[in-house]
Amino acid sequence: MKQRAEELRSTKGLKGAAKLAREMEACVSAIDELEGIDSEVATMFHRLVSEEAPDLAPKTFYGFPAYANGEGKVVMFVQPKSKFDTRYPTVNFDEHAHLDDGAMWPTSFAVVEVTSEVESRLRDLVRRAVA
């Protein structure tokens, strides 16, 4: 909660391009601080989102690298394993992602290795999330 409060404070009073630039800087900084598989996943996902969903704005969300729509609502984010000392990082899609598929669908994906197959699957999910 403290990280989220700090994120909000850091952009207080900023609007438009200045706010987007500060949020982008925070996202890139959060990715740069990661190591190992956390760094690999976050770096790859940042590239995918930039390529497939350029309208999403990079920011941080509770310290996680995240990507928000034009209304500022987080659509997707990476949760590093180091944050909660878990076995693997996850790529998560929030309620604003358009992944609905019947009565139940996954919104969180564990990534234990960055491979071309993983990248391809995540690329498809990003495309679907913003469609």
Rank of each mutant, 00 (worst) to 15 (best):
D32T: 09
G36L: 00
E25R: 11
E33R: 08
A53G: 10
S29T: 12
E52S: 06
L99N: 07
V75D: 04
I37H: 04
A26C: 12
H46C: 13
K59H: 14
L56T: 00
R87W: 15
V75I: 11
L56M: 03
F84Q: 14
M76S: 11
I37M: 13
L56Y: 01
E25C: 06
A68M: 14
D94I: 00
L99D: 03
E95R: 12
P58M: 03
E25Q: 09
P89V: 08
M44N: 13
E71Y: 02
D38L: 11
Y62W: 10
H98Q: 13
Q79T: 06
T90K: 14
I37P: 07
T60R: 01
N92D: 06
E33V: 07
E33H: 08
F77Y: 15
A57T: 02
E71M: 01
D94H: 10
H98W: 01
M76C: 15
T43R: 13
G72E: 01
P89E: 09
D32Q: 11
D100S: 14
E23I: 00
M76W: 09
K83D: 11
A68T: 02
V75M: 09
T86L: 00
D101G: 13
D38Y: 03
V41Q: 03
A42L: 08
F61H: 09
V41A: 14
A53F: 00
C27E: 10
E23L: 04
V75H: 04
G36N: 02
E52H: 12
A66V: 15
F84G: 12
K59G: 08
K81G: 13
H46G: 10
M44V: 06
R47D: 14
Y67F: 10
M24W: 06
L48P: 11
E40C: 07
D94E: 06
A97P: 05
C27K: 09
V28M: 13
S50M: 11
N69A: 03
L34D: 02
K81V: 01
E71V: 03
G36T: 05
G70V: 02
P65C: 02
E25P: 12
V74W: 05
P54A: 00
A42C: 15
M44C: 12
Y67N: 05
A53P: 02
A42E: 00
A97E: 12
A42K: 01
G63L: 01
A53Y: 10
